[in-house]
Nucleic acid binder design. Structure first.
Length: 480
RNA sequence: GGCCCCAUCGUCUAGCCCGGUCUAGGACACAGGGUUUUCAUCCCUGUAACGGGGGUUCAAAUCCCCCUGGGGUCACCA
């Protein structure tokens, strides 16, 4: 079954449902998709939900919905099935278990009974040393000791037995040969003590059993690639081709992060970016079209797609350029299509917005001024000039500064925000009223608005963070 | 810190593989000007880059080496 598939290209995107759908996922998906379409191969969607504590089904649904919104269609996936299913790792545990057994039997992997405490101690002790991987404590356990420990029901993990000598290398499609000395490769955990496989085991088993020919993924995976190669070898499987895409960056060139950039795909939908424009923009990051064509459709992108045009330099994510491109799309649309687009955009908001607006409305027209804060790009000219009564400049700075810290990582829900605001008031020793009014004016632009938290969650986290930074910037101009 | 990746305008990039055609081109942003009752659009102009040092060569942004800088990764997360 697998052999037949190896004839043609099969690539995949393998997101894990542990948060809001990420723009990086869209980026990598775009290149995988284009590679598949260009070569007449298949593009597969697989959900990597082996992290039991962080994975949530609603996140999976959001990933699917977002990719569909973008127009990146997949040939096989959890929703549509396919010959190599299931496409959700939590439903393939039996497969991993079998393969785990195989490795154990062959001596390619071993049981490890080290406690988290011991591991922590070990890491502490080796802090200054160059190699900080597992020290191999359980590597030499005899069969008898292992059996005894298992009978005593000691919790265990299974680790890969990485050869101590020689080297492991691969040929990256973009970067050429990349090589490691085996002694510096860690004995990676393959099976966690909760019985779930780690990413490393699951993705290798799945990529092989799904006949994946090219693994196109983000650069951050380069350093775990030797472990994956060792796994393929341990199983006796052919190794797929690897292609590591460079990472999208913040302005300071660190890996893109949600407090510095809009990482959630929800953001783009909420501020009214067209999916085609987003994809167009993403297709310009680390890649260029022939003749430097700047505006192109998904179809054109796929038709001209060429791996050799991918760059290894990591691009800084530039929202401004995205908006420019989106503007070009918007202005080129027919009036009818724009009407349609705006209607469906508005419809997406209505349910949530009306939940807050209806009781405050007397006519339909009241809706727009009431909820205008949802769409205003520039909120207030000068926040310092419209500070709520009895809130000092210093207090406002404190509130906004603390909020900025908290908003970057808190749970983006009414409850989550409520908690943040409560803690914020306590930490600053301010009355709740002051905190709320300061945030209300800074973030919603008016003294009279629907409830703060309910209003904020209608927006994307980053949208709010941007406003916070804007208001804080206004305050800087004022002297204390 | 070890290992690995990367390096052209502020940003996205073309050029680099196959050295001369590069006094380095385009786009965004910025500045100035024009069109427009205003704004936006649109048009024109301008500022602005091959990180440093060694080689190789008649000739290097392009090839080689070193340095520097940036980044990623070192989890029972993916």
């Amino acid at each position: 079954m697998v052999d037949k598939k190896l004839d043609s290209v099969r690539v995949r995107i393998a997101p894990s449902p542990t948060g809001e759908p990420h723009v990086g996922t869209a980026y990598v998906a775009l290149f995988n998709w284009a590679f598949a379409r260009k070569s007449g191969g298949k593009f597969i969607l697989r959900i990597e939900d082996t992290d039991r504590s962080r994975s949530r089904p609603e996140y999976e649904a959001e990933i699917l919905r977002s990719l569909r919104w973008l127009g990146l269609d997949w040939d096989e996936g959890p929703d549509i099935g396919g010959d190599c299913g299931p496409y959700r790792q939590s439903e393939r545990l039996e497969l991993y278990r079998e393969h785990m057994e195989r490795l154990l039997k062959a001596g390619e992997a071993y049981y490890c009974f080290c406690t988290p405490e011991r591991l922590e101690r070990m890491r502490e002790e080796r802090k200054g040393e160059s190699f900080r991987g597992y020290d191999g404590h359980c590597r030499g356990l005899s069969e008898g000791q292992v059996r005894e420990n298992l009978e005593r029901n000691l919790p265990y993990v299974v680790r890969l037995r990485v050869p101590r000598e020689g080297e492991t290398a691969f040929e990256d499609m973009l970067r050429g040969r990349v090589c490691w000395r085996n002694e510096e490769i860690d004995d990676q955990v393959l099976l966690k003590s909760d019985g779930f496989p780690t990413y490393h085991l699951a993705s290798v088993v799945d990529d092989h059993s799904m006949g994946i020919t090219h693994v196109i993924r983000a650069e951050e995976w380069i350093s775990s690639t030797p472990k994956h190669i060792l796994l393929y070898r341990a199983f006796g499987w052919p190794v797929p081709k690897f292609c590591h895409l460079s990472l999208l960056r913040n302005r300071d060139r660190s890996k893109i992060s949600k407090r510095r950039n809009p990482c959630s795909l929800h953001y783009y939908r909420k501020v009214g970016i067209f999916p085609q424009a987003l994809l167009n923009f993403l297709g310009l990051q680390g890649y260029s079209m022939p003749q430097e064509q700047e505006i192109f459709s998904l179809e054109e992108f796929a038709r001209d797609f060429d791996v050799s045009r991918i760059k290894t330099r990591s691009p800084v994510f530039d929202l401004e350029k995205l908006f420019h491109i989106n503007g070009v799309y918007l202005r080129s649309m027919s009036r009818e299509r724009l009407v349609e687009a705006l209607l469906s955009y508005t419809r997406g908001w209505l349910e949530g917005a009306l939940g807050l607006a209806q009781e405050r409305m007397e006519s339909l027209g009241d809706f727009f001024p009431l909820m205008a804060f949802l769409w205003q790009r520039e909120l207030v000219g000068d926040f310092g000039a419209i500070l709520p009564k009895r809130v000092s400049l210093e207090e406002a700075r404190g509130v906004l500064g603390k909020a900025l810290e908290a908003y970057g990582s808190c749970e983006w829900s009414v409850e989550g925000l409520r908690r943040v605001h409560g803690e914020l008031a306590k930490a600053l020793g301010l009355k709740k009223g002051k905190v709320f009014m300061t945030l209300r004016t800074a973030l919603l632009g008016k003294l009279g608005t629907p409830p703060l938290e309910e209003s904020l969650v209608l927006m994307d986290r980053f949208q709010v963070i941007q406003r916070l930074e804007g208001a804080l910037g206004c305050l800087e101009k004022w002297d204390v």
